[in-house]
Structure formats: structure tokens, C-alpha cells
């Protein structure tokens, strides 16, 4: 593929941000934070207008026929980019691992080519365009929830912790069962709500037992699920996306919390 616009060192990497549908709809502050972080790392960021959803909800529900055209559309929209970055491990995993599995022939080749330049946000900011150290600090106790797709499909474990250490001067509190699912699982949490609630309760208890005041992570699906359960159970725990913490945005109401103003 042709290099778009010539990549001079001054200009830095050219990144197309795939916002993800959950950030677009429920938590725009995550997308704004992602743009700010990428720009601080010296990237030129654009947000292709023709994006919506990566097709993961349909794909994981086994609706392959519905997910396929979406995957092809995402490939078409994103393949001109030098790099594609997503503030979500599971959506990045969808593009990187599942598009090639879902598609065939020429489209599979294009999916594989796209996968090679697609990154989850915290991985990109540690491995491709290192984020400069910040002077911010987070004084509250933060626990990190490792989302399963990011953890197992993309090996995201140390990257967000390292960034939180550098940027916010915070050591995350480690959960006892940090590699166990929170109960989201796409449509799973709506199809099997009692089981999902039990799984979320375990995760929330783990965080609260560790003394966490903030529970953060890299995937809004998990965070919305956990925040929704924490709110229902009346737990005193803020749930925020890691990108928000990294730009020092702790003023925005946490997920599921009201805005008294």
C-alpha cells in the first residue's frame, strides 16, 4: 500500500482512530482522551467519518452473515491509514484476530494487512508511539480490570499499568482473580443476567476488598457492565476508562454516575 502523505519525523505517526461504538454512544470522553493521548505522543490523528461498529456484537452472537459486511466496510474505511488505534482490547482483537477468521479470499488478505497496523490504545502508546511522562498524579486507590479479549488475544497486561505508573504516578491494586471474566461477554450479560451478575459481583468484591476507590480498564463493555452492577448494588466505586485517567480527566462523572450540574 502507498504511504499516505509521507511520514516525516516531525509529523509523527499518522493514526486513524476507530472510536468504537460504545465510546461513541455512551462515553465520548474516552474518545477525546484517546485523541489527546495520541497527539501528546506526537501522532497526527484523524477520525474517519464512515465508522460505526466493528461488528463484534453480531459476530459473537454467531451472526456471521450480519458481521461480514460490517467487517468489509471497516476494512475499506481504515485500510488507507498508517496505523489504526482503538481504545478497546476486544474491538482491536476483533479487527486483528477475528476479521481474518470471518472473511475469505481477497478480503481475508486485506483483513490480515489491516491487522498488521492495528493496535489497542495502551499498546500503541507503549510500543509504537511512547507517551511522554506526565506530571499528573492520581491519589485515589486504583484497581485495574484486565478485559479478557485484550489480555488473551493481544497480550495487554503490563502496558496500561506502565502508563498509569508513568503518567499518573500510581501503582494499580492487583485483583486476586485478575484473569477472570467480569461477566460482560456481549449479549451474554443480557441473555444470562443472573450468571453475569454473580461474575460481576465477584469482580467488584475483589476490587473493593483491595481498597479500590476507582476501577479502571481498557474496555467499555466490561466497564459499563461493572458500573451498572456497582450502581445497582450501591457500591462506592468509580468506574472509569484508563484513557480518562491517563489524561487526568477525573472531573467527568464516572460511568453511571449523575451530573448534579
Amino acid at each position: 500500500m502507498e504511504q499516505q502523505g509521507g511520514q516525516s519525523p516531525a509529523q509523527g505517526p499518522r493514526v486513524s482512530l476507530f472510536v468504537t461504538c460504545l465510546a461513541d454512544l455512551f462515553r465520548p470522553s474516552v474518545a477525546w482522551a484517546a485523541i489527546e493521548l495520541l497527539e501528546q505522543a506526537g501522532c497526527t490523528v484523524d477520525v474517519p467519518a464512515a465508522q460505526s461498529c466493528c461488528g463484534q456484537p453480531a459476530y459473537n452472537a454467531g451472526e456471521y452473515d450480519a458481521a461480514r459486511p460490517l467487517a468489509r466496510q471497516v476494512i475499506e474505511v481504515l485500510e488507507p491509514a498508517d496505523y489504526v488505534v482503538l481504545p478497546s482490547g476486544s474491538c482491536a482483537g476483533m479487527l486483528i484476530h477475528h476479521y481474518p477468521r470471518l472473511l475469505e479470499g481477497e478480503w481475508r488478505e486485506r483483513a490480515v494487512a489491516l491487522a498488521a497496523k492495528t493496535f489497542e490504545l495502551t499498546t500503541f502508546l507503549t510500543e509504537i508511539a511512547p507517551l511522554p511522562a506526565g506530571d499528573g498524579s492520581v491519589t485515589t486507590a486504583v484497581a485495574y480490570h484486565d478485559s479478557c479479549a485484550g489480555l488473551r488475544e493481544l497480550g495487554i497486561r503490563e502496558q496500561p499499568r506502565e502508563l498509569l505508573r508513568q503518567r499518573c504516578d500510581v501503582e494499580v491494586l492487583e485483583l486476586t482473580q485478575r484473569d477472570v471474566c467480569c461477566g460482560f461477554g456481549g449479549t451474554f450479560c443480557a441473555k444470562m443476567p443472573d450468571i453475569a451478575a454473580k461474575m460481576s459481583d465477584d469482580k467488584l468484591k475483589d476490587a473493593l476488598d483491595k481498597g479500590a476507590r476507582v476501577l479502571t480498564g481498557g474496555d467499555l463493555g466490561c466497564l459499563l457492565t461493572l458500573a451498572g452492577r456497582a450502581s445497582r448494588m450501591g457500591h462506592d466505586l468509580e468506574v472509569r476508562h484508563v484513557a480518562e485517567l491517563l489524561v487526568g480527566d477525573t472531573g467527568t462523572p464516572a460511568i453511571g454516575e449523575g451530573d448534579p450540574g
Binding site: C189, P193, D194, A197, L224, A227, G228, R229, R232, T252
Partner: peptide, 9 residues
Amino acid sequence: RQRDFPAPQ
């Protein structure tokens, strides 16, 4: 059934 639905920001 088991959790609140976070409002869009």
C-alpha cells in the same frame, strides 16, 4: 434485571 443501565454521557 440485575444491573443499572449507564446513561450516555
